[in-house]
């Protein structure tokens, strides 16, 4: 049984060597030495021909067992050496994850654009069209079609930059409504539109006045549009812009192009209506004007006011943005300080 002893010694020595190996190269050498074609186990197996037929299978099986044991040990050691090597490499590759990332420069859209986009998308979703119109407008569309004849006291409400007696910088985006109403074919369905854009007033620029600002006006005309519809629409708008908890209230007012005319207040988003500095302790903030389209405006567009009617509203994106973001000087919008503009680079 010396052969078996030899094998056992071989196994024990082999296992010790394998265990002690620290490099892949050494491990490979050991593998070749122990298990290679010239290795001791192969030798044992080769020497089997000298054994008796009874011993042959026993020794053979034992030799195979030893070979498998060593092979497994080498494999295990190899895995563990590889893992060690990888861990070493990973350790060496460690970086400071707190270093700043590579800069990606993305521009910001102007806060007024964001404010208008937000409102435009709301109304697009409700089936309105967005209509642009000229910024240089005729007196006819800016005033007369809107039921503000020459020398009407209401012209005082909108100090105007004139270019000629008949041509002016539009003071509101209502003339876009007049132009659209005039062209609209009601056999194709109702008119639902908003008209956003730049408007101009003959004002001296200060914290609360700007000779250039923006407006979004809305108009819905069909055979049966009610003031309740106006109230509902404005409530959707107020909740969309100022938060789902907001409520609105209407107060009587006067615009030559609507009758009845109302001012619309929204419950204060800063205090929820309890009263604070933002709402001047009233719980309400005036945000827009609205009303039922004046029959003269309908008539001026060549439409029968006994059959068709509707509502209109007008709001100031500048004012909306000032309220929403606590901006206290309207000139900020047009001075374009990059630090001011970049604050609004988040959604929300």
């Amino acid at each position: 049984m010396s052969l078996k002893n030899d094998l056992e010694v071989l196994r024990d020595q082999g296992l010790t060597q394998i265990k002690a190996t620290e490099s892949m190269k050494d491990l490979n050498d050991i593998r070749v030495k122990l298990l290679g074609k010239k290795g001791p186990i192969t030798n044992v197996l080769r020497g089997m021909k000298d054994l008796s037929p009874e011993e042959r299978p026993k020794v053979g099986a034992f030799a195979n067992e030893i070979r498998d044991t060593l092979t497994t040990a080498i494999e295990t050691r190899k895995n563990s050496l590889e893992a060690e090597a990888l861990n070493k490499q990973l350790a060496a590759e460690t970086i400071d994850v707190t270093l700043p990332g590579r800069q990606v420069h993305v521009g910001t859209s102007h806060i007024l654009t964001q404010t208008m986009d937000d409102i435009e998308e709301l109304f697009i979703g409700m089936g309105y069209q967005v209509v642009d119109g000229p910024e240089v407008e005729e007196d006819h569309y800016n005033f007369e079609m809107m039921n503000i004849p020459k020398n009407h006291p209401a012209r005082d409400m909108q100090d105007t930059f004139y270019i000629t007696n008949e041509l002016l910088m539009r003071t509101h985006t209502s003339p876009v409504q007049a132009r659209t109403l005039e062209k609209h074919d009601f056999s194709q369905g109702p008119l639902k539109m908003i008209s956003p854009g730049r408007v101009f007033r003959r004002d001296t620029d200060d914290a609360t006045h700007s000779h250039q600002f923006h407006q979004i006006e809305g108009l819905v005309v069909d055979k049966h549009i009610t003031m309740a519809d106006l109230k509902g629409t404005l409530e959707v708008l107020a909740k969309h812009v100022f938060g789902a908890e907001r409520t609105i209230r209407l107060r009587p007012s006067y615009f030559p192009f609507t009758e009845p005319s109302v001012e619309v207040d929204v419950s204060c988003f800063a205090c929820g209506g309890k009263g604070c500095a933002v709402c001047k302790y009233t719980g309400w903030i005036e945000v827009l004007g609205a009303g039922m389209v004046h029959p003269n405006v309908i008539k001026n567009a060549g439409i029968d006011p006994d059959v068709y009617g509707g509502f209109a509203f007008g709001l100031g994106p500048d004012r909306f943005a000032m309220l929403k973001y606590g901006i206290d000087d309207i000139r900020e919008f047009y001075l374009n300080d990059i630090r001011f503009l970049h604050q609004f680079n988040t959604e929300g």
């Binding site: 697009i124 069209q129 639902k192 209230r249 209407l250 009758e259």
Partner: peptide, 29 residues
């Protein structure tokens, strides 16, 4: 329309019902 306004304001805008226009569908785009 002037009379309608008198009724509306004296009745009270707070008491007006709330609804959305019930009209034919229009594409918004």
């Amino acid at each position: 329309a002037d009379l309608v306004e008198e009724i509306a304001r004296m009745y009270g805008y707070d008491r007006l019902p709330v609804s959305l226009p019930k009209v034919a569908m229009t594409p918004g785009e």
